[in-house]
Simulated assay, not measured.
Amino acid sequence: LVAQWKQSREHSEDIHHKLMQAYPEVPDWWYGALFIFMSIIAVITCEIWDYKLPWWGVLLAIAMSAFFALPVGLIQAVTNQQPGLNIITEYVIGYMLPGHAIANVTFKTLGYISMAQALTFTGDLKLGHYMKIPPRAMFWAQLMGTFIAGLTNLLTANWLLASQKGICEDNKQFGCPSANTFYSASVIWGVIAPDRMFGPTSIYNAVNYFFILGFLLPIPFYYLKKFWPNSALEFIHIPVLLAATGMMPPAQAYHYTNWLAVGFLFQFFARRYHPDWHLRYTYILSAAFDSGTAFMVLFSFLIFTLRDVDMPYWWGNPEDSMCPLESAPYIPLAPPPAA
């Protein structure tokens, strides 16, 4: 952190910064006023709607997101991986307010998503910097986009909850894996609370040692790289390795195998043996995959889900289950011994 900070202060101006000096910068008080105003709105919202999260909990969540924004942002800038604060925030508020699920998820949202959105906003500003978009135009575009997106998400969620039967339960089209993960976390960290779930008397108490392991694990590799520079150790980055598991759940094992195959194909094979093609087309193809997936999800919803039509059966979507163990009989648990 210190080295990156010094480098950012001492590094000579690049051509992008020189060209952007033609536009007026966003005044700091714009950001400060927006920060204070939205913090007040968050406190008022939690008090009026009785989320069981007191005002000091809201301020603590905001302080945690602000504190971790710089180190997590540095990791993301170097590795394109963003370690989440969801576990840390759930852990903290779970000890402070045990038994309150709504307060737990609200604190997590304020403490984790605030930081994630701040880093997304920073990345968009960087993109606008390279595209030579005036900073003030970027500020207002982001502000209006956030308002429109939030309102659209709220209206869409309410519409789906009212129109889709069994949503997030037995609805085939809307299984809601992310929402179920969010709900499970609220039960584990909010209702049960970390003291009962991972406390000294719990069978899961040993899980706490992984916090210490995650803190200590990068240290030996740091010194090993000092002793053996320009070796294969340069490719070992512990935050990246550990952050990769952050998508599980709701991601499953086959997601990781697909990601590994695609990543190996483009970032190793194409980059090493076809560098010109990789330099010219890889990121364009990545954007095409993202856009194509988004459009296909929308078309699938309009064609199949909205009309309550099942997806056609074919080789990639067989009628029978592809998991033979799914129909295996369950072995009932033995009854407890008589007292």
Results as ranks from 00 to 15, higher is better:
P250D: 09
N153F: 10
T106C: 12
N171H: 13
A116C: 10
D276P: 05
F174A: 13
A141L: 07
L127T: 15
A185F: 03
I203V: 11
Y130F: 10
T245V: 07
W228I: 12
F182V: 08
D195R: 13
L285E: 09
I93H: 03
N208D: 10
S327T: 13
D28T: 01
G32V: 03
T109H: 02
V191C: 01
L1H: 09
S186A: 13
W140G: 08
F299E: 13
S39L: 10
T282H: 05
L224C: 04
I192A: 08
E319L: 07
I236V: 15
I331D: 13
M20D: 15
D170Q: 15
S39M: 13
I236M: 10
L298M: 15
G166V: 06
Q76R: 12
L161Q: 12
F198R: 08
V191N: 09
F174C: 00
A63S: 15
Y91V: 02
Y31D: 15
I188L: 10
I87N: 00
H255G: 02
G214E: 07
Y204N: 11
V187F: 05
G150Q: 14
P220K: 05
D28I: 00
E319R: 08
P337C: 06
D320P: 02
P249Y: 04
A162K: 11
L333K: 11
Q252S: 02
L97E: 03
W159I: 14
M96P: 07
P54G: 05
G123I: 12
G190W: 05
L125R: 07
N205Y: 02
L34V: 09
A66W: 05
N153S: 15
M197H: 06
H17W: 12
M247W: 01
V92W: 04
K172Q: 14
N171W: 00
L241D: 00
P218C: 04
D14L: 01
P24M: 03
P200D: 14
A288H: 05
A118Y: 00
D170R: 14
F289G: 09
G111R: 01
L213W: 11
I48Y: 01
H129C: 01
W55H: 02
L333R: 10
N153D: 11
Y256N: 04
W29P: 03
S300V: 06
A69R: 06
L279P: 02
Y31F: 13
A66V: 11
